[in-house]
């Protein structure tokens, strides 16, 4: 479940970044405004994602690659 949320947020970040690119392409005052806003969204989402990652890791909802590895070796 956590990984689904994480991927959804990543998709959201990519969309915000892409919308920023569209703003960059358009140029002019509106383009600049659009780019700025999208990038603010993308920074906020990224921080949120980082928070979720750390929280899920701490709570044990997801396990880092390395932990998955340890379990396999123990087996």
């Amino acid at each position: 479940m956590s990984s689904v949320i994480i991927i959804v947020i990543i998709v959201g970040i990519l969309l915000a970044l892409g919308s920023g690119l569209l703003g960059l392409m358009r140029g002019g005052p509106e383009g600049s405004e659009k780019m700025f806003r999208s990038l603010v969204v993308r920074v906020a989402l990224s921080l949120f994602l980082f928070g979720i990652l750390m929280l899920s890791g701490y709570m044990g909802w997801i396990e880092p690659n390395a932990v998955i590895m340890d379990a396999t070796i123990a087996k």
């Binding site: 994480i6 990652l53 880092p64």
Partner: peptide, 25 residues
């Protein structure tokens, strides 16, 4: 400025993808 800024944000997002997919999930 805007071009470089977007580039930087792009590099930043690539890192997020890396962090999630290479280190975590």
């Amino acid at each position: 400025f805007e071009g470089v800024a977007w580039y930087w944000h792009f590099v930043d997002v690539v890192w997020l993808g890396l962090f999630v997919f290479v280190y975590w999930v």
